[in-house]
Simulated assay, not measured.
Amino acid sequence: MTRIDGRTAVVTGSGNGIGRAIATAYAAAGAHVVVSDVLTDDGERTVAEITEAGGSAVFVAADVAVPDQAAALIAAAVDRFGGLDVLVNNAGGGGAQLRLHEVEPADFDRVIAVNLGGTFLCSRYAIPHFLAAGSGAIVNIASTYGLIGAPKAPAYCASKGAIINLTRQLAVDYGPDNIRVNAICPGYIDTGLGRRGPTLSEEDFAAATAVRERAAARQPLGRQAQPAEVAAVALFLASDASSFMTGSIVPVDGGCTTTFNYGDASN
């Protein structure tokens, strides 16, 4: 039931981390995968790993916040593989870790443009192909930060919260067209701090990693997830195994949004 043989899937932000794991899982399950990222070397590395394992994948560079590039990405998938069946809106960024009054307007706008705007644009250009085919699946990667308030992440929280409710809204509009739209809300995922990692000094990277590990240790399952654990849920949501799910918001967070964490006060 979790095979998606012969289907074409676009996975944005799939040069690294969760997106890369999703692209790899989809290819292993039989899909033709269009890997997309602004980081060309990383995206091509993902494609190389898929093809070396016997899968089918191509790379298309795209900044999903730019309408023409989002449109070209979807068009490239259709041209290359003859159609489109699945869209994973994963591309995103966190922005500076500041309180709102310290955030520069341009930085806030960029986070919204990539996270929320990219989800809108790629969906906007994919949906006509789903309508023509009579079916389709969109998997949006939101965040636990879209479900709760989190310190020093105003743009990120705002964008991910908006993605969650956009997911519900699209499910309402397109359910009658057999287009399913669901969202995953990852918690602490061990991605090596994603794109922040390479920009940090060795000392800062170690400190940031330790903070994440301590925070993850306080959650019910007591650890960070591996990207493959999120990818498994994304594969389920793209497959016929989830055929009666739409508008669902699925936390993959080790239980962190199920409880108020008292920290040291609970001891």
Rank of each mutant, 00 (worst) to 15 (best):
L235I: 04
S14D: 09
V47Q: 03
G83W: 12
A206P: 06
T199Q: 14
V252S: 05
F130P: 00
R180H: 04
A183V: 02
V211W: 08
L73C: 11
A158E: 07
A171L: 03
F244D: 00
D240W: 13
G6E: 11
L131Y: 00
T24E: 14
T46F: 04
D107Y: 06
G55P: 07
D264P: 14
Y125M: 06
N267Q: 09
V11I: 12
V64N: 09
G255D: 06
A228W: 13
F59Q: 11
L98Q: 14
N140F: 00
A70T: 01
V114N: 02
A9R: 01
S248C: 12
G149N: 11
V139H: 01
R99P: 00
D190K: 12
A28D: 12
A48K: 14
L84C: 00
D240Q: 13
T51V: 15
D41E: 15
A150R: 11
A234T: 04
G15N: 01
Q219R: 10
T257S: 08
E202R: 12
A265R: 15
V181W: 08
R45V: 11
N182A: 05
M245F: 13
G30A: 08
P227T: 03
P227R: 07
A210S: 13
A265D: 12
T144G: 00
A9Q: 01
A133H: 07
A207G: 05
R218F: 06
I189L: 11
A183T: 08
A183F: 02
Q97A: 11
T257P: 02
S159T: 11
A265P: 07
V64T: 13
F236H: 12
C157G: 03
A241M: 12
D253T: 10
A206R: 10
A228Q: 15
A27I: 08
P105C: 05
G92V: 03
T40V: 14
D5C: 01
A210V: 05
V230Y: 01
C185Y: 07
A9S: 08
D253R: 13
P128Q: 04
V88A: 01
G149H: 12
A137F: 00
N178P: 02
T199A: 11
D68T: 15
E104R: 13
A23R: 06
G247S: 09
V35K: 02
L39G: 07
E203M: 02
T144E: 01
Y262P: 06
G222V: 09
I127A: 03
T257G: 01
I22N: 01
E49M: 13
A137R: 15
F120Y: 14
S159V: 11
T246W: 10
R212A: 08
F120G: 01
A21Y: 01
Y156M: 03
I249G: 02
G255V: 03
D5N: 10
R196K: 11
S239K: 06
Y188A: 10
A217N: 08
A158N: 07
G93I: 13
G93L: 15
D41A: 14
A48R: 14
Y174P: 00
D109E: 15
P154S: 14
D240Y: 12
T257F: 04
A61E: 13
N261V: 08
G95M: 05
Y26C: 10
L147N: 00
Y125L: 09
T12P: 01
V114G: 02
